Amino acid sequence: MVANTQMDADKVKIMGSKVKVDSIMKVADIEEAEKQKMKRKVDKILAYKPDVFINRQLVYNYPEQLLADAGVMVIEHADFDGMERLAAVLGAEILSTFDDPKSDVLGSCAGIEEIMIGEDKVIKFAGCQRNEACSIVLRGSGNHILDEAERSLHDAICVLVSAVKNHRTIYGGGNAEIRMSLAVHDLANTVEGKQALAIEAFSRALRQ
């Protein structure tokens, strides 16, 4: 399940207001009410029967414990742009409310694992349901080389996108000049005299 929802309401938050109580027991009652509210939210999430819960925002200890007790792995504080790409490859919808449990809003993949790339830890999703996005890892000896590699890769992807959108292609590598040279050469064969020599010379110039 891919979500963007608050999972940090298990602590009392007071912003720009005051709550006055006359005993510590009432503070405990407020905290218990917050916990029960969070538990109801977690129960709604569990109604979808997910194996993994990926959230854009933080997941505090109490809801994480409830999800872990139900056998659900939690991934919190995911990158926002990465969330959209992840939802695309998993075939999932990014949920913010959980009032209508449906299995078709959940994505799927063959496996999830944490791997090391250089000195960084990343989470790898393998065997995704759709192939609408992917991750490309660039490695180099310095920032300058990585910047150049990123620009080159960006140019290549732009060419690929243009080729997919528009199937008409102009061949490079001197293809246009050679075709013109052949056409001019054929024309030279149909002309007599010194004019044919001039046309043939122009044909050779195009080939060079």
Rank of each mutant, 00 (worst) to 15 (best):
G111W: 00
D186M: 09
D155G: 04
E177A: 14
S203W: 02
D100V: 07
V184A: 06
D29Y: 09
K26L: 09
L46P: 01
K49F: 03
K26C: 01
A87L: 05
P63K: 14
V2I: 15
R56S: 04
V161K: 15
L206F: 06
K26A: 13
L197S: 12
T190I: 07
V27F: 05
N61S: 14
A92N: 02
E113H: 03
L187E: 11
N131V: 05
A68M: 08
A70S: 12
K44R: 13
K49Q: 07
M73K: 15
G118F: 02
I24R: 10
N131W: 03
R139N: 02
C158T: 08
G172N: 06
M1W: 03
R168G: 00
V159W: 01
G107T: 04
F53E: 06
S152Q: 13
L86T: 12
V52R: 01
V137C: 00
R151Q: 15
V19F: 06
K41M: 03
I145Q: 15
L160Q: 06
E84D: 10
S203Y: 04
M83C: 09
E132W: 06
A33R: 08
E114D: 11
E200G: 03
V161A: 07
A78V: 14
A47E: 05
I54Y: 14
A126G: 10
A87Q: 10
G127T: 04
M1E: 03
L138T: 01
E76K: 15
I94R: 07
K165F: 02
G16N: 10
D100L: 04
V74N: 08
M180A: 13
V42Q: 01
Y171Q: 12
M1G: 08
N175R: 12
Y62R: 09
I178M: 13
M25K: 07
K102S: 09
A70N: 06
M116F: 03
K165T: 05
L197P: 00
V12W: 01
A196L: 11
S135I: 02
L206R: 10
Q208L: 09
A3S: 13
E119F: 00
V184Q: 06
A3R: 03
C134Q: 12
T169H: 11
D120V: 00
A163D: 13
I75H: 10
C109R: 07
K102N: 08
I136K: 08
D100R: 10
I112Q: 02
D79C: 11
D8T: 08
R204Q: 10
R56Y: 11
V12S: 01
R139G: 02
N166D: 12
L182V: 14
D81C: 12
V72Q: 10
G174W: 03
M7R: 11
E93F: 04
V164D: 06
D69Y: 05
D100S: 14
A9H: 12
Y48F: 15
L146N: 05
M7Y: 06
G173P: 00
A196D: 09
D186I: 00
N4R: 05
M73H: 14
V105N: 06
N189L: 09
